[in-house]
Design a binder for these strands. Structure first.
Length: 304
DNA sequence: GTCCAGGATTCAG
DNA sequence: CTGAATCATGGA
């Protein structure tokens, strides 16, 4: 990563300010697994064939790309939803009547759903089951390094499905995928035969899209909801992971509810941008900034 | 050592 | 249909 590989830092104009803590949550908050913090407080990431760095300084958000790479700034603006369509959706969430959502939203104001590629989102979340964000990042980095197209300066794109389907077992094993290797290979073999799957899936309505994704090996309700939200931009999709189960149980009193019930609650309660509300709750819960109800007494007493 | 992680699949009832 | 067991791996 020699300094000569990079262009000069330049301002990146978004609709709203992006302080450092928000940038960290935006890039490393469980949506994408392709961003890493550098030693000097910046972030370096790869999405599609774009390699970019971002940092939040006194003069606002700044970016730089690899020298000779065209379109980096435009790619960043699209990726970060610079048009600001989500600002209005966030304002329309029921935070005025919901103190839990209000506090979660105020913990990371300006947090947005990244506009990611479906293919890359699916790879990331196929690796995600029963894993922490940090380790998902390690797995995905290994896949890119060993099976992805070189992009210069030592960076690699994520592998294609054909590369994944043809990958040697030892290579997959060296990425610490565990049992998820079979998920990746199985889905790769299925999608290999339909190279335009993402366009075809994008034409479906959200219930059909969720069902189609869940027909793939290693894709259950939660992974399908994440790919639908982060990869296909369906803001109404409401993924329910262990953090959201905890958050909805502790903050809304929905303890002992099953994930499918919580998903229904989320979509009904939060509406058209339920997925964005989910991301506020997820981030706030992970940082201990969620308003919670008192813990349930172990032996509830009858009140006479 | 135990427990848990942005779960999915398979199996028993 | 629901609930439990199992899956592979690393960090706390």
């Amino acid at each position: 990563m020699a300094a000569t590989e990079w262009t000069a830092w330049r301002p990146l104009r978004l609709a709203e300010d992006v302080p450092a803590a928000l940038l960290a949550e935006q890039l490393d908050g469980g949506q994408s697994f392709r961003w890493s913090a550098t030693s000097d407080g910046a972030w370096v990431g790869i999405f599609g064939r774009t390699v970019a760095m971002l940092r939040s300084g006194a003069d606002g958000l700044e970016w730089r790309g690899l020298k000779g790479a065209a379109g980096t700034e435009a790619a960043l603006l699209a990726y970060l939803d610079a048009e600001g369509a989500q600002a209005r959706l966030s304002a329309d969430l029921p935070w005025r009547s919901d103190p839990v959502l209000r506090a979660a939203r105020e913990a990371f104001p300006g947090l947005r759903i990244l506009r990611q590629d479906p293919h890359e989102t699916l790879i990331g979340f196929l690796c995600s089951s029963n894993k922490r964000i940090l380790q998902i990042r390690v797995m995905v980095a290994g896949l890119a390094e060993k099976l992805g197209e070189p992009l210069g300066a030592g960076f690699h794109a994520l592998p294609t499905w054909s590369a994944l389907a043809a990958a040697d077992d030892a290579v997959l094993k060296s990425c610490a995928l565990g049992y998820r290797a079979a998920f990746l290979r199985g889905t790769a073999q299925r999608l290999l035969a339909r190279p335009r799957w993402a366009e075809e899936f994008a034409a479906l309505d959200t219930p059909a899209l969720l069902a189609e994704l869940q027909s793939l090996p290693g894709v259950g309700p939660k992974v399908a909801a994440c790919v639908t939200l982060f990869g296909f931009g369906r803001l109404e999709s409401f993924p329910v992971d262990t953090w959201v189960v905890q958050a909805l149980g502790d903050a809304y009193g929905l303890r002992k509810w099953k994930p499918a019930q919580l998903e229904q609650f989320g979509r009904a309660h939060f509406g058209a941008a339920a997925g964005l509300a989910q991301q506020y709750l997820f981030s706030a819960a992970r940082h201990g900034k969620l308003i919670t109800l008192p813990p349930e007494p172990k032996r509830p007493k009858s009140r006479r």
